[in-house]
């Protein structure tokens, strides 16, 4: 490769809100903070079906998918998002999955079992989220190069 010819590699992140949950402040705060941390963030807005989220993840070829949910429907919606992703050949071994919002601690274990590597609740310092991504990404077993 000629010196400096290759573009610097950027981490691409999808921030998505599944279901009818209209609380979008947190998602926007997280999206803006990851942009400020140097990442390319695709934000798709509220009211996304699992199919829409999976399709966006596929077309945008993201490295990271972050779901934001405050409605309480996470145990119902997250498995459907994971299924829609795997229907498209995307798994938690090649894309970093994590989430935030109002997710009670009693549900964390179930959410992790679905493949979500991290759960971030109210009051999270956004710098923590960016460092989490930088630490976790290299450990994905099937990450594409």
């Amino acid at each position: 490769m000629t010196a400096g010819a290759e573009q610097e590699r950027r981490i691409r992140v999808l921030i998505a809100k599944p279901g009818l949950d209209g609380h979008d402040r947190g998602a926007k705060v997280v999206a803006a903070s990851l942009r400020d941390a140097g990442m390319e963030v695709i934000y798709t807005g509220i009211r996304q079906t699992p199919q829409m989220i999976a399709e966006a993840a596929l077309q945008e070829d993201v490295d990271v998918i972050g779901l934001s949910i405050l409605s309480g429907a996470h145990l119902e919606l997250f498995p459907r998002v994971v299924d829609a992703l795997s229907e498209r050949g995307i798994g938690s071994d090649d894309v970093l999955l994590f989430c935030g919002g109002i997710i009670p601690r009693v549900d964390w274990e179930a959410v992790r079992e679905l493949g979500f590597r991290g759960v971030f609740g109210p009051g999270t310092d956004t710098r923590e989220i960016a460092s989490f991504i930088r630490e976790q990404l290299p450990t994905l077993p099937a990450r594409a190069l």
Partner: peptide, 14 residues
């Protein structure tokens, strides 16, 4: 892209 962080917020899908 942000000229400072080089990050970007891509919102056209909305």
């Amino acid at each position: 892209s942000s000229p400072f962080s080089h990050g970007a917020l891509l919102g056209d899908r909305i």
